[in-house]
Amino acid sequence: MHMFEFIRPTDPAAAIAAAAQSKTAQQGADVRFMGGGTTLIDLMKLNVETPDRVLDINRLPLDKIEVTPDGGLKIGATVRNSDLANHPKVQKDYLVLSQAILNGASAQIRNMATVGGNLLQRTRCVYFRDTAMSCNKREPGTGCPAITGHNRTLAILGASDHCIATNPSDMCVAMAALEATIYVQGPKGSRAIPFADFHLLPGRTPHQETVLEPGDLITHVTLPPPAVGSKHLYLKLRDRASYEFALASAAVVLTIAGGRITRARVALGGVGTRPWRSPEAEAALAGKPANVATFRLAAEAALRNARPQSENGFKIELAKRCLIYALRTAATS
């Protein structure tokens, strides 16, 4: 573990000013904010993250869940995953988010992990997590041994020749489907980032995972007012029954009227290099009868651009079954 300075700022401005001195907010950052530490400390122990300064943001006033004037929800960056998943408003109006969070990790980890941290969760690719291995995400230009190696759990959507790492978050999949907005305060003021614009595709720069700049502090996330009468479901498929990252997951939010789908929001997890919102599936669902034939077409559309690696071709079929079943179950709920 790299030696680091541990600082506990009590106001956001001081935290932002300290972090603004980092040369990057991406891989290789020399200053890091720490929420629950469930990813960051893990990676610091592995020497994958080597910040000189760690800013513990848990003393900042960012831990509230509030209903917004328009009936949506404002979720502070340091709200614990457990608190968010068990919040009555979330369970009532944003069930898909509660389900996604409770399908992730373990109770102990969810009690520590924060919303802001979960937005920045790093991949579980074994090559990324081992500094003895090459990795374009960790050390740009060194190569990607996952493409020719162990890649069963890695991405089939959004991958490039440089990186095929999966985004492992469950929470983010639900937030993508809920069209969350991420609020960031930085050295130049605050800004709102639509969820779909927050995570980047790896392309030639897999070390850049988000649009965050040095000093950018995620302060909160907002969810738009719930779609009236919408049906929610998060379905996660994995080898064992618990405590495993998704091989494929689906977050669906459907509004159905008169047997037709009037509005559909779909995102997939465990298959993409980022939380994978699927406009293709949504387009295939919108205005169509809520039946299995429609759901099949949506699944085909969602996976049309999937590109398998040597060990993970099965994820295409698995993700299709996952989405079809999630849509069917949500529609009949």
Partner: peptide, 12 residues
């Protein structure tokens, strides 16, 4: 490629 037990942790 390098002969390492590659899933050498309790998540993998």
């Amino acid at each position: 490629q390098n002969g390492a037990p590659i899933n050498s942790n309790l998540a993998d």
